[in-house]
């Protein structure tokens, strides 16, 4: 039987991405939002790797996914630090409470 084509992989990455977006929009918990971001990044990363295999992108796709992973890690670190600060200031992690920048 033929190996799995790109479409299923892309579909999976789409699900990851969409779930990440939904996660970001629905979660009031700051950490939850962060998780959504991780999902989105993973979706993207998966896309890169998929294309690295099925298109002439080659190794470049993998390199990019590596960068994505690294940057996601960095992002997570900083975001968590922010979340902690947020928590320290608001005594909650509810992002809806942090609306000082409202118009």
């Amino acid at each position: 039987m033929e190996a799995v084509g790109p479409n299923p992989f892309l579909f999976v990455s789409a699900v990851l991405f969409v779930c990440g977006v939904v996660c970001m929009t629905t979660k009031r918990n700051g950490i939850g939002v962060l998780m959504g971001v991780e999902l989105v990044l993973n979706g993207a990363s998966l896309n890169f790797v998929t294309f690295s295999k099925f298109t002439p992108l080659g190794l470049d796709g993998q390199v990019f996914s590596l960068f994505v992973i690294v940057l996601a890690a960095a992002e997570a670190a900083v975001a968590l630090a922010i979340a902690l600060n947020f928590y320290n200031n608001h005594l909650t992690i509810d992002v809806d409470r942090g609306d000082e920048l409202h118009g």
């Binding site: 950490i31 996914s65 968590l80 928590y87």
Partner: peptide, 24 residues
């Protein structure tokens, strides 16, 4: 990449998140 994903994400980032969950 897969290995990195496991190590960095599952081993690092998510642990970090869990720490965050616990702290908050």
């Amino acid at each position: 990449v897969g290995a990195t994903q496991l190590m960095v994400y599952v081993g690092g980032t998510v642990v970090l998140l869990v720490f965050g969950v616990m702290l908050t």
